[in-house]
Design a protein around this nucleic acid. Structure first.
Lengths: 156, 156
DNA sequence: TTCAGTGCAAAAACTTTGCAGGAGG
DNA sequence: CCTCCTGCAAAGTTTTTGCACTGAA
């Protein structure tokens, strides 16, 4: 875990240098908190978590740094239709897409190689240079808590 | 065009009845404006357009009605990663997904039957009942205006 | 008659911006 | 030493909510 963290720092440092951004302690603090987060998180959520841990990093810096981390592929930028940007640690992880339960909000991941192939084919056909994609499946999951909520709603 | 509009009204009426929502003139006014819109639009955008046309329908009603129209499949609800909900007339149209140029913001549509197959397979495998999906490819388009902007950015 | 739906304005949630001061290169 | 980055607070954008009133069933 610590090895990963150092390697991630190193990668971020390289990116910042290459793009002529300054190397500041705040940026690495954001990176640490982001990688520590399990699952998806919003920018404000991360900012508040840092604030609660007595970090002095400002909201503006958190928002700005998350953009940089997404740009250099240490984080993935997501949007699950809630009108807020979500991030997810990507460093060293396999790329994947998501199933989102519209009833209980739970999110499952899946990998399907055929999707990359489709991205390539469609882009080529339409004269487009793809840089990424987002594929979300919406529906109802079979989680028992979820079913409970469905029944509650039906009864109300 | 007028025939479509009447048929859409009829479908919306049926839906409202079935779900025990009241049938109000405001809701049909929103439907008319929504179907009239070319391409994608945001809720506030539609509200303002209506307001400028001297409609009295309130912001709250527009937001509420667009949800209903998406729920009954007359509109499709989209999100292209700008943290705002976008809608698009779906009535009588073939389902499709989108290519989004991150440089100039233009949006192209494509249809790829294999995607539905993937949605089905993945959902079945993971114990999930799909109700819809969103598939967006991000990248750079070859539109000439777009290339111009890219060059501007590189030169700055 | 009843209560879901409406208009309006205020609040909420998330993000961006402006500015003055501070530190990285 | 220059200017990019930072913290802070204010403003911006989109969406939701509270409340009193109205009109559909």
């Amino acid at each position: 875990m610590n090895i990963d963290l150092n390697a991630a720092h190193e990668e971020f440092r390289r990116y910042l240098k290459k793009e002529k951004h300054r190397i500041t302690p705040e940026r690495f603090e954001v990176l640490d908190y982001a990688l520590e987060f399990e699952g998806h998180f919003g920018a404000d959520e991360l900012f508040l978590k840092m604030k609660n841990n007595n970090s002095n990093v400002s909201r503006a810096t958190v928002y700005n740094t998350l953009e940089l981390l997404a740009a250099c592929d240490l984080l993935a930028k997501r949007n699950f239709g809630e009108n807020k940007t979500r991030y997810e640690a990507k460093y060293g992880r396999k790329s994947h897409d998501h199933l989102i339960c519209t009833n209980c909000g739970s999110i499952k991941e899946f990998s399907e190689p055929a999707i990359e192939k489709i991205v390539k084919e469609i882009s080529e056909k339409l004269g487009f240079e793809p840089t990424g994609h987002s594929f979300n499946i919406f529906g109802k999951c079979t989680n028992s808590n979820c079913k409970m909520r469905q029944n509650e709603q039906n009864n109300s």
